[in-house]
Design a protein around this nucleic acid. Sequence first.
DNA 1: GTTTTTGTTGATTGACGAGTCAATAAACTT
DNA 2: AAGTTTATTGACTCGTCAATCAACAAAAAC
Lengths: 198, 198
Amino acid sequence: MPKLGMEPIRKDALVKATITEIGRTGSLDVTVSQIAKRAGMSSALAHHYFGSKEDMFLAAMRHIMTIYGAEVRGALGVAQTPMARIDAIVVASFSPTNFRREAVGAWLNFWVLAQTVPQAKRLVAVYQRRLKSNLLVGLRPLAGARAEGIAEGLGALIDGLYLRQVLRPGAPDGAAAAQMARDYLAAHLPSAPQDHNR
Amino acid sequence: MPKLGMEPIRKDALVKATITEIGRTGSLDVTVSQIAKRAGMSSALAHHYFGSKEDMFLAAMRHIMTIYGAEVRGALGVAQTPMARIDAIVVASFSPTNFRREAVGAWLNFWVLAQTVPQAKRLVAVYQRRLKSNLLVGLRPLAGARAEGIAEGLGALIDGLYLRQVLRPGAPDGAAAAQMARDYLAAHLPSAPQDHNR
DNA sequence: GTTTTTGTTGATTGACGAGTCAATAAACTT
DNA sequence: AAGTTTATTGACTCGTCAATCAACAAAAAC
């Protein structure tokens, strides 16, 4: 009973299943059959919609980045001050949607994929560029010439917190991670010493 | 012409070849044959000395960590002040030996391996614990109760800088990375504002 | 000098998995 | 109603690779 217009639904299910499976197993060594099964279809159908396993990986990467990008954009939309802009990015980066187990696990594996697949590398590069430029908009008014270095450092710290989350047991603590990023900012922007407790 | 006492030599060659190959290809999907070939022997011999491919990976991880640990210990040995201790760790972390391309590429892949192989996870945990405790010895006299959080943050930053190095083209710039870590410290330890140029 | 230990490899096995294909079926078109 | 497009899958091909084995060689032990 082939309903028509299945393509987008199937592709979407496959993309999500790809992220889930990679995140769950913590490896790119997931079989197309595994992914297809989780998405509720045969592996042949998965190959029908995506040409190859690599295409599925790339689509999954794009999906993660799209969600992240949308969330950042949404938060930036309502930010009024430079400081609020930066904080919006930090909050979005560690929001439950983005900082959840499977997504972080998949993200790390995509980083590894980027070493092999040029297309994946380009996607990571896009992410890095966007993150940095978004941060700079908020940082330049606050830090002037030092903004560049601070953005670089904060970016690396965020990535590092993601990296470490991967091996942490239990549910991700986005709030703690976000606080760590804020501490970094507070230390580098003495102009806004908002909190120094503990 | 079997010379005797080959075992340690062969094992050593295999461990180094494993790191090289993983770093070079940027993936754990290296074949035992590839590794053995680079180490100048047959794949059968590789299996003879290490029981399995996984054993080779674990030995390679241990090797990387051993080198790193030795270098840190050496640097700590001559450090007189708390600040010197912290700096010794930072310098060792980004020394040419540890911060070279293949080693960093392999290191990231081992991090991924840790998601799958409990033994590998334990090794990473050991690394993290040692790093943190080493940092704390230097940090506590300088930051008191804040030391804990700073050590955590600096650790994440270091890991993040490693992570990002993986995708950076060209030769690794350990000096720049180390400077970033120092900036982090300078910002969090206002007591020692050693440099604030640029 | 024969037996044992250590080193070494080519060839083989066995499993697994990406991608293809042929076939079936339900919708839409004309 | 015949033809076309879209959906779907079981079965198959083909390659790859970890791991094993049988065999050979040289040193050491007896």
